[in-house]
Simulated scan of single mutants.
Amino acid sequence: MPRRTATMLASTLMLIALLCAGVLIPVPYAEMSPGPTVNTLGEHDGEPVLQISGHKTYPADGHLNMTTVRVTSAGYRMNLVEAVYGWLAHDSRIVPHDTLYPDGKTEEQSTQENAEEFSQSQESAKVAALKELGIPVRSWVIVSTVVKGSPAEGRLHAGDVIKAVDGAAVKQPADVAKLVTKHKPGQKVVFTVVPAKEQAAAEKAHRTASRTQDVTITTATSDDSGAKRAIVGISAGTDHTFPFSIDIKLADVGGPSAGLMFALGIYDKLTPGDLTGGTFVAGTGTIDDNGTVGPIGGVEMKTVGARDKGARYFLTPADNCAAAAKDTPSGLTLVKVKTIGDALGALKDIRSGDTAALPKCTTKG
Protein backbone atom coordinates (compact mmCIF):
# COMPACT_ATOMS: atom_id res chain seq x y z
CA MET A 1 0.00 0.00 0.00
CA PRO A 2 1.45 3.39 -0.98
CA ARG A 3 2.64 5.51 1.96
CA ARG A 4 0.22 8.36 1.13
CA THR A 5 -2.75 6.00 0.97
CA ALA A 6 -1.79 4.38 4.25
CA THR A 7 -1.51 7.80 5.92
CA MET A 8 -4.94 8.86 4.63
CA LEU A 9 -6.48 5.58 5.75
CA ALA A 10 -4.95 5.91 9.21
CA SER A 11 -6.17 9.51 9.48
CA THR A 12 -9.66 8.48 8.39
CA LEU A 13 -9.77 5.67 10.90
CA MET A 14 -8.54 8.02 13.63
CA LEU A 15 -11.25 10.54 12.74
CA ILE A 16 -13.91 7.82 12.83
CA ALA A 17 -12.60 6.65 16.20
CA LEU A 18 -12.72 10.19 17.58
CA LEU A 19 -16.27 10.71 16.28
CA CYS A 20 -17.38 7.42 17.80
CA ALA A 21 -15.77 8.37 21.10
CA GLY A 22 -17.48 11.75 20.98
CA VAL A 23 -20.87 10.11 20.45
CA LEU A 24 -20.42 7.26 22.90
CA ILE A 25 -18.58 8.89 25.80
CA PRO A 26 -20.94 10.79 28.16
CA VAL A 27 -19.86 14.11 29.64
CA PRO A 28 -21.12 15.67 32.94
CA TYR A 29 -23.06 18.49 31.33
CA ALA A 30 -26.67 19.48 30.72
CA GLU A 31 -28.30 21.86 28.26
CA MET A 32 -30.52 24.88 28.78
CA SER A 33 -32.49 26.32 25.86
CA PRO A 34 -35.41 28.73 25.36
CA GLY A 35 -38.73 27.26 26.50
CA PRO A 36 -42.30 28.32 25.73
CA THR A 37 -43.57 31.79 26.57
CA VAL A 38 -47.16 32.22 27.73
CA ASN A 39 -49.25 35.39 27.72
CA THR A 40 -50.65 35.80 31.24
CA LEU A 41 -53.44 37.93 29.76
CA GLY A 42 -54.45 35.27 27.25
CA GLU A 43 -55.34 31.62 27.07
CA HIS A 44 -53.34 28.42 27.35
CA ASP A 45 -54.68 25.06 26.20
CA GLY A 46 -58.08 26.61 25.56
CA GLU A 47 -58.71 28.37 28.88
CA PRO A 48 -57.72 31.73 30.39
CA VAL A 49 -54.43 31.67 32.28
CA LEU A 50 -55.84 34.04 34.93
CA GLN A 51 -59.37 33.34 36.16
CA ILE A 52 -60.83 35.85 38.63
CA SER A 53 -64.31 35.65 40.15
CA GLY A 54 -66.03 37.59 42.92
CA HIS A 55 -64.55 40.94 41.89
CA LYS A 56 -65.00 43.27 38.92
CA THR A 57 -62.50 42.63 36.12
CA TYR A 58 -61.68 44.50 32.92
CA PRO A 59 -60.70 43.36 29.43
CA ALA A 60 -56.92 43.25 29.04
CA ASP A 61 -55.33 43.18 25.60
CA GLY A 62 -51.70 43.07 24.63
CA HIS A 63 -49.02 40.77 25.96
CA LEU A 64 -47.51 40.27 29.40
CA ASN A 65 -45.65 37.06 28.67
CA MET A 66 -43.95 34.90 31.26
CA THR A 67 -40.93 33.03 29.92
CA THR A 68 -39.44 29.61 30.59
CA VAL A 69 -36.27 27.60 30.07
CA ARG A 70 -36.17 24.06 28.73
CA VAL A 71 -33.55 21.77 30.33
CA THR A 72 -32.35 18.25 29.67
CA SER A 73 -33.63 15.62 32.11
CA ALA A 74 -31.66 14.47 35.15
CA GLY A 75 -31.13 11.03 33.67
CA TYR A 76 -29.98 12.21 30.26
CA ARG A 77 -26.25 11.85 29.66
CA MET A 78 -25.01 14.26 27.03
CA ASN A 79 -22.18 13.14 24.79
CA LEU A 80 -19.18 15.22 23.76
CA VAL A 81 -20.51 16.02 20.28
CA GLU A 82 -23.77 17.37 21.74
CA ALA A 83 -21.87 19.43 24.29
CA VAL A 84 -19.63 21.01 21.63
CA TYR A 85 -22.63 21.74 19.40
CA GLY A 86 -24.41 23.36 22.35
CA TRP A 87 -21.37 25.49 23.21
CA LEU A 88 -21.27 26.78 19.64
CA ALA A 89 -25.03 27.37 19.33
CA HIS A 90 -26.36 30.86 20.01
CA ASP A 91 -29.68 29.79 21.50
CA SER A 92 -28.54 27.25 24.08
CA ARG A 93 -26.26 27.06 27.08
CA ILE A 94 -24.20 24.12 28.31
CA VAL A 95 -23.79 23.96 32.10
CA PRO A 96 -22.40 21.38 34.54
CA HIS A 97 -25.01 18.71 35.25
CA ASP A 98 -24.77 19.42 39.00
CA THR A 99 -25.86 23.01 38.38
CA LEU A 100 -29.35 21.80 37.49
CA TYR A 101 -29.42 18.65 39.63
CA PRO A 102 -27.16 19.21 42.67
CA ASP A 103 -26.26 16.52 45.18
CA GLY A 104 -27.55 13.72 42.97
CA LYS A 105 -31.08 15.12 42.98
CA THR A 106 -33.40 12.98 40.87
CA GLU A 107 -35.66 14.38 38.19
CA GLU A 108 -38.69 13.49 40.35
CA GLN A 109 -37.25 15.44 43.29
CA SER A 110 -36.43 18.40 41.09
CA THR A 111 -39.91 18.34 39.54
CA GLN A 112 -41.53 18.27 42.99
CA GLU A 113 -39.36 21.13 44.24
CA ASN A 114 -40.13 23.19 41.12
CA ALA A 115 -43.86 22.52 41.52
CA GLU A 116 -43.77 23.73 45.13
CA GLU A 117 -41.85 26.87 44.12
CA PHE A 118 -44.30 27.51 41.29
CA SER A 119 -47.25 27.21 43.66
CA GLN A 120 -45.65 29.58 46.15
CA SER A 121 -44.85 32.07 43.39
CA GLN A 122 -48.52 32.13 42.41
CA GLU A 123 -49.55 32.91 45.98
CA SER A 124 -46.97 35.69 46.30
CA ALA A 125 -48.01 37.12 42.92
CA LYS A 126 -51.61 37.38 44.12
CA VAL A 127 -50.58 39.02 47.40
CA ALA A 128 -48.21 41.48 45.70
CA ALA A 129 -50.81 42.52 43.11
CA LEU A 130 -53.58 43.01 45.67
CA LYS A 131 -51.31 44.93 48.03
CA GLU A 132 -50.34 47.24 45.17
CA LEU A 133 -54.05 47.82 44.58
CA GLY A 134 -54.71 48.44 48.27
CA ILE A 135 -56.91 45.35 48.62
CA PRO A 136 -56.47 43.71 52.07
CA VAL A 137 -55.16 40.15 52.23
CA ARG A 138 -55.20 38.10 55.44
CA SER A 139 -51.97 36.23 56.14
CA TRP A 140 -50.65 33.90 58.82
CA VAL A 141 -47.66 31.65 59.53
CA ILE A 142 -48.12 27.92 59.00
CA VAL A 143 -46.17 24.70 59.28
CA SER A 144 -45.07 24.23 55.69
CA THR A 145 -43.34 20.85 55.98
CA VAL A 146 -42.47 18.35 58.72
CA VAL A 147 -39.24 16.36 58.41
CA LYS A 148 -39.72 12.62 58.63
CA GLY A 149 -38.19 11.19 61.80
CA SER A 150 -37.87 14.60 63.45
CA PRO A 151 -39.20 15.51 66.93
CA ALA A 152 -42.14 17.33 65.29
CA GLU A 153 -43.34 14.30 63.33
CA GLY A 154 -46.78 13.33 64.57
CA ARG A 155 -46.92 16.40 66.80
CA LEU A 156 -47.20 19.16 64.22
CA HIS A 157 -48.72 18.84 60.76
CA ALA A 158 -48.45 20.69 57.47
CA GLY A 159 -51.05 23.45 57.45
CA ASP A 160 -51.13 23.99 61.22
CA VAL A 161 -51.23 27.73 61.94
CA ILE A 162 -48.45 28.78 64.31
CA LYS A 163 -49.78 31.47 66.63
CA ALA A 164 -46.96 31.52 69.18
CA VAL A 165 -43.78 29.77 70.33
CA ASP A 166 -43.25 29.69 74.12
CA GLY A 167 -45.96 32.31 74.40
CA ALA A 168 -44.21 34.77 72.06
CA ALA A 169 -46.44 35.79 69.14
CA VAL A 170 -45.29 34.66 65.69
CA LYS A 171 -45.68 37.32 62.98
CA GLN A 172 -43.55 35.92 60.18
CA PRO A 173 -41.93 32.56 59.30
CA ALA A 174 -38.45 33.65 60.40
CA ASP A 175 -39.76 34.19 63.95
CA VAL A 176 -40.21 30.44 64.41
CA ALA A 177 -36.55 29.52 63.94
CA LYS A 178 -35.40 32.46 66.08
CA LEU A 179 -37.59 31.36 68.97
CA VAL A 180 -36.73 27.65 68.68
CA THR A 181 -32.97 28.28 68.55
CA LYS A 182 -33.11 30.22 71.82
CA HIS A 183 -33.25 26.74 73.36
CA LYS A 184 -30.46 24.25 73.78
CA PRO A 185 -30.86 20.83 72.14
CA GLY A 186 -32.88 18.55 74.44
CA GLN A 187 -34.94 21.35 75.94
CA LYS A 188 -38.69 21.57 75.46
CA VAL A 189 -40.42 24.17 73.30
CA VAL A 190 -44.16 24.91 73.29
CA PHE A 191 -46.01 25.68 70.06
CA THR A 192 -49.44 27.27 70.18
CA VAL A 193 -51.22 26.28 66.98
CA VAL A 194 -54.56 26.18 65.24
CA PRO A 195 -54.79 22.61 63.86
CA ALA A 196 -54.86 22.43 60.05
CA LYS A 197 -58.32 20.81 60.02
CA GLU A 198 -59.77 23.54 62.23
CA GLN A 199 -58.23 26.23 60.02
CA ALA A 200 -59.59 24.63 56.85
CA ALA A 201 -63.09 24.36 58.37
CA ALA A 202 -62.98 28.01 59.47
CA GLU A 203 -61.94 29.18 56.01
CA LYS A 204 -64.72 27.17 54.38
CA ALA A 205 -67.27 28.73 56.74
CA HIS A 206 -65.76 32.22 56.23
CA ARG A 207 -64.98 32.63 59.92
CA THR A 208 -61.86 33.12 62.01
CA ALA A 209 -60.50 30.00 63.67
CA SER A 210 -60.45 30.43 67.44
CA ARG A 211 -59.59 27.00 68.84
CA THR A 212 -55.90 26.66 69.63
CA GLN A 213 -53.86 23.98 71.31
CA ASP A 214 -50.41 23.84 72.88
CA VAL A 215 -47.98 21.24 71.57
CA THR A 216 -44.81 20.54 73.57
CA ILE A 217 -41.81 19.21 71.62
CA THR A 218 -38.35 18.22 72.83
CA THR A 219 -35.75 19.80 70.57
CA ALA A 220 -33.00 17.85 68.83
CA THR A 221 -29.54 18.83 67.60
CA SER A 222 -29.14 20.04 64.03
CA ASP A 223 -27.15 17.70 61.81
CA ASP A 224 -26.16 20.03 58.97
CA SER A 225 -22.76 21.59 58.37
CA GLY A 226 -23.53 24.79 60.28
CA ALA A 227 -23.23 25.55 63.96
CA LYS A 228 -25.05 23.07 66.19
CA ARG A 229 -28.41 24.38 67.32
CA ALA A 230 -31.79 23.26 68.59
CA ILE A 231 -34.33 22.17 65.97
CA VAL A 232 -37.76 20.53 65.93
CA GLY A 233 -37.79 19.51 62.27
CA ILE A 234 -40.24 21.82 60.54
CA SER A 235 -40.11 24.59 57.97
CA ALA A 236 -42.44 27.55 58.39
CA GLY A 237 -44.25 29.34 55.58
CA THR A 238 -47.06 31.78 54.95
CA ASP A 239 -50.67 31.12 53.95
CA HIS A 240 -53.24 33.65 52.82
CA THR A 241 -56.97 34.17 52.52
CA PHE A 242 -58.00 36.26 49.54
CA PRO A 243 -61.19 38.34 49.44
CA PHE A 244 -62.14 36.79 46.09
CA SER A 245 -61.06 33.92 43.87
CA ILE A 246 -57.91 34.14 41.74
CA ASP A 247 -56.91 30.97 39.89
CA ILE A 248 -53.82 30.57 37.72
CA LYS A 249 -54.33 27.82 35.16
CA LEU A 250 -50.96 26.79 33.80
CA ALA A 251 -49.67 23.23 33.88
CA ASP A 252 -46.25 21.75 33.11
CA VAL A 253 -44.39 24.81 34.40
CA GLY A 254 -42.19 24.86 37.50
CA GLY A 255 -40.03 27.18 39.54
CA PRO A 256 -40.66 30.65 40.96
CA SER A 257 -39.59 32.84 38.02
CA ALA A 258 -43.08 33.69 36.67
CA GLY A 259 -44.10 35.54 39.84
CA LEU A 260 -43.61 39.07 38.49
CA MET A 261 -45.54 38.46 35.27
CA PHE A 262 -48.42 36.77 37.10
CA ALA A 263 -48.66 39.74 39.46
CA LEU A 264 -48.75 42.20 36.56
CA GLY A 265 -51.37 40.12 34.76
CA ILE A 266 -53.59 40.09 37.85
CA TYR A 267 -53.13 43.84 38.33
CA ASP A 268 -54.03 44.47 34.67
CA LYS A 269 -57.24 42.43 34.86
CA LEU A 270 -58.36 44.24 38.03
CA THR A 271 -57.84 47.75 36.62
CA PRO A 272 -59.39 49.54 33.62
CA GLY A 273 -57.28 50.05 30.52
CA ASP A 274 -54.28 48.09 29.28
CA LEU A 275 -50.97 48.14 31.12
CA THR A 276 -49.03 47.57 27.89
CA GLY A 277 -51.00 49.84 25.56
CA GLY A 278 -50.99 46.94 23.10
CA THR A 279 -47.20 46.54 23.14
CA PHE A 280 -45.69 43.05 23.36
CA VAL A 281 -43.95 42.94 26.75
CA ALA A 282 -42.35 39.83 28.26
CA GLY A 283 -40.35 39.34 31.40
CA THR A 284 -39.27 37.21 34.30
CA GLY A 285 -38.48 37.43 38.00
CA THR A 286 -39.49 36.01 41.34
CA ILE A 287 -41.72 38.13 43.53
CA ASP A 288 -42.37 38.15 47.26
CA ASP A 289 -45.45 39.22 49.19
CA ASN A 290 -44.14 42.78 49.37
CA GLY A 291 -43.62 43.06 45.62
CA THR A 292 -39.81 42.75 45.61
CA VAL A 293 -38.51 41.23 42.37
CA GLY A 294 -35.72 38.66 42.67
CA PRO A 295 -33.24 37.08 40.21
CA ILE A 296 -33.77 33.89 38.25
CA GLY A 297 -31.70 31.39 36.29
CA GLY A 298 -31.31 31.11 32.53
CA VAL A 299 -32.11 34.73 31.76
CA GLU A 300 -30.15 34.61 28.48
CA MET A 301 -32.38 31.80 27.24
CA LYS A 302 -35.52 33.64 28.29
CA THR A 303 -34.63 36.80 26.38
CA VAL A 304 -34.04 34.75 23.23
CA GLY A 305 -37.38 32.95 23.65
CA ALA A 306 -39.19 36.23 24.27
CA ARG A 307 -37.73 37.96 21.19
CA ASP A 308 -38.45 34.93 18.99
CA LYS A 309 -42.07 35.17 20.09
CA GLY A 310 -42.25 38.88 19.19
CA ALA A 311 -41.49 40.76 22.42
CA ARG A 312 -40.15 44.32 22.16
CA TYR A 313 -39.51 44.91 25.87
CA PHE A 314 -38.28 42.50 28.52
CA LEU A 315 -38.79 43.23 32.23
CA THR A 316 -35.54 42.04 33.81
CA PRO A 317 -34.69 41.58 37.50
CA ALA A 318 -31.97 44.08 38.42
CA ASP A 319 -29.63 41.30 39.59
CA ASN A 320 -29.89 39.61 36.16
CA CYS A 321 -29.28 42.75 34.11
CA ALA A 322 -25.53 42.41 33.62
CA ALA A 323 -25.78 38.80 32.39
CA ALA A 324 -28.76 39.53 30.13
CA ALA A 325 -27.16 42.62 28.58
CA LYS A 326 -24.05 40.74 27.44
CA ASP A 327 -25.96 39.22 24.54
CA THR A 328 -29.25 41.06 24.07
CA PRO A 329 -31.31 39.80 21.11
CA SER A 330 -31.67 42.40 18.36
CA GLY A 331 -34.81 44.51 18.71
CA LEU A 332 -35.36 43.72 22.39
CA THR A 333 -35.05 46.38 25.11
CA LEU A 334 -34.11 45.10 28.56
CA VAL A 335 -35.85 47.07 31.32
CA LYS A 336 -34.40 46.88 34.84
CA VAL A 337 -36.92 46.32 37.65
CA LYS A 338 -36.51 45.81 41.39
CA THR A 339 -40.16 45.92 42.48
CA ILE A 340 -43.64 45.56 41.05
CA GLY A 341 -43.83 49.36 41.37
CA ASP A 342 -40.82 49.68 39.06
CA ALA A 343 -42.51 47.38 36.54
CA LEU A 344 -45.76 49.35 36.63
CA GLY A 345 -43.83 52.60 36.15
CA ALA A 346 -41.97 51.14 33.17
CA LEU A 347 -45.22 49.92 31.61
CA LYS A 348 -46.70 53.41 31.99
CA ASP A 349 -43.78 54.82 29.98
CA ILE A 350 -44.06 52.07 27.38
CA ARG A 351 -47.77 52.57 26.73
CA SER A 352 -47.32 56.34 26.54
CA GLY A 353 -44.50 55.97 24.05
CA ASP A 354 -42.15 58.00 26.25
CA THR A 355 -39.40 55.40 26.70
CA ALA A 356 -36.33 57.63 26.84
CA ALA A 357 -36.19 57.48 30.62
CA LEU A 358 -36.74 53.72 30.93
CA PRO A 359 -34.17 52.14 33.30
CA LYS A 360 -32.34 49.92 30.81
CA CYS A 361 -29.98 47.05 31.62
CA THR A 362 -26.28 47.40 30.88
CA THR A 363 -23.37 45.02 31.17
CA LYS A 364 -22.59 46.73 34.47
CA GLY A 365 -26.05 46.00 35.86
Rank of each mutant, 00 (worst) to 15 (best):
residue 298 G to C: 03
residue 339 T to I: 00
residue 273 G to R: 06
residue 47 E to Q: 14
residue 12 T to A: 07
residue 17 A to S: 12
residue 76 Y to Q: 03
residue 49 V to T: 10
residue 328 T to P: 05
residue 168 A to L: 02
residue 119 S to R: 15
residue 339 T to Q: 05
residue 364 K to F: 12
residue 62 G to Y: 01
residue 112 Q to G: 04
residue 74 A to R: 11
residue 274 D to G: 05
residue 138 R to T: 11
residue 245 S to Q: 06
residue 288 D to V: 12
residue 227 A to F: 08
residue 178 K to C: 01
residue 301 M to H: 00
residue 92 S to K: 00
residue 134 G to F: 04
residue 229 R to C: 09
residue 332 L to Q: 00
residue 145 T to H: 11
residue 160 D to I: 11
residue 59 P to I: 04
residue 243 P to Q: 07
residue 230 A to D: 12
residue 215 V to T: 13
residue 11 S to M: 13
residue 219 T to M: 08
residue 270 L to F: 03
residue 216 T to A: 15
residue 10 A to Y: 00
residue 212 T to P: 03
residue 159 G to E: 10
residue 354 D to H: 14
residue 23 V to I: 07
residue 196 A to E: 10
residue 40 T to G: 02
residue 315 L to P: 05
residue 280 F to V: 02
residue 278 G to P: 06
residue 49 V to N: 09
residue 118 F to I: 02
residue 207 R to K: 12
residue 147 V to L: 13
residue 66 M to T: 14
residue 31 E to S: 04
residue 263 A to Q: 06
residue 296 I to F: 05
residue 265 G to E: 13
residue 119 S to H: 15
residue 43 E to T: 15
residue 233 G to C: 06
residue 150 S to C: 10
residue 187 Q to L: 08
residue 35 G to Q: 09
residue 145 T to D: 13
residue 363 T to L: 08
residue 299 V to T: 08
